[in-house]
């Protein structure tokens, strides 16, 4: 029998060591904490499934799930919509837009600004009585008086959603554009010869062929969106608690506050698992909705 060389295991060991120490161990430890009343320090007792029961009946967690969706939902529509429009413009054979690299950089720029700066920037722009947006609106006569954007849940959520879309549409555009450039020009040329208009080309050729890429953008955005945290933390009106009226209290913000602020570490661990389960479920649902049973290759 041929002797097996075991050196290979040695070479792949570093990855597994790091993976076990920094991924598997924390994941299992967090699972263990869900069964305790650990406060992040000191002694703790086992409390069974109390934290899980609490999470299922927690009104604030329910609100946090809804808030996350209310912010992520419009954001993905704007983000993908805008990115797709740009892709259509750039792949159009007739228009032949030049300097794609330049535009790609420009569209991607918002993504490079640190979130803290983005939050500060928009907090200043959207300030009720002193923000430049309200000053422009009033000067142009588009509003009678300044709008208190962060005085109402709907406008606060709308703005966080818009900022999120503004930051990420460039990223989606780059990925979709790369996908579109990989498509054979023959389809588009043939369609043109057959007399198809832009709408027919978009819905009949571009969109179906881009579906796998769209799915990728959609699912990664969903996973990222479910973890929405920094903007709500930095822009909420009550020092990071998720105001106005709890409307910016997203799932991860709620987990963070429960764990690090209120020191309900055990419960925060449970929320972490809750968020994981929900994200997995939503991802599967999103996938099925887009592709039905057969998946991408249907």
């Amino acid at each position: 029998m041929k002797k097996k060389d075991k050196y290979g295991y040695l070479f792949i060991a570093p990855f597994f060591v790091v993976f076990i120490v920094f991924n598997i161990y924390p994941i299992l430890l967090t699972l263990f904490y869900t069964l305790t009343n650990y406060k992040g320090y000191g002694e703790y007792q086992m409390v069974g499934l109390d934290n899980w029961g609490k999470m299922l009946t927690d009104k604030f967690f329910g609100q946090a799930i809804l808030n996350t969706w209310k912010i992520w939902g419009p954001n993905i529509l704007i983000q993908l919509g805008l990115a797709l429009i740009l892709v259509v413009i750039f792949v159009d054979l007739k228009w032949k837009i030049k300097a794609l690299g330049f535009f790609r950089t420009i569209f991607y720029l918002p993504n490079l600004i640190t979130l803290a700066s983005v939050a500060m920037l928009f907090t200043a722009i959207l300030n009720w009585k002193y923000g430049s947006l309200n000053q422009i609106l009033v000067t142009l006569g588009l509003a009678n008086t300044e709008i208190n954007w962060f005085g109402k849940p709907i406008t606060a959520q709308m703005w966080v959603s818009t900022i999120q879309a503004w930051m990420w549409f460039g990223n989606s555009f780059i990925i979709l554009m790369a996908g579109a450039q990989g498509l054979s020009k023959d389809y588009f040329e043939a369609a043109r010869v057959d007399g198809a208009n832009r709408f027919q080309i978009f819905f009949g050729i571009l969109l179906p062929l881009l579906k796998p890429i769209l799915l990728y953008v959609f699912i990664t955005s969903l996973i990222g969106g479910m973890q929405l945290f920094e903007l709500p933390l930095l822009m909420s009106t009550d020092n990071g608690l998720g105001g106005p009226s709890n409307s910016l209290n997203t799932m991860i913000l709620y987990m963070y506050n429960q764990g690090f602020r209120f020191k309900n570490f055990g419960y925060a661990s449970t929320i972490a698992y809750g968020v994981f389960i929900l994200t997995a479920v939503f991802s599967v649902i999103g996938y099925k909705l887009m592709y039905g049973k057969g998946g991408v290759n249907e």
């Binding site: 005085g151 109402k152 009226s245």
Partner: peptide, 11 residues
Amino acid sequence: NSARDDYINGL
């Protein structure tokens, strides 16, 4: 203060 905001903003 968050409760105060809810009240004075008419929410």
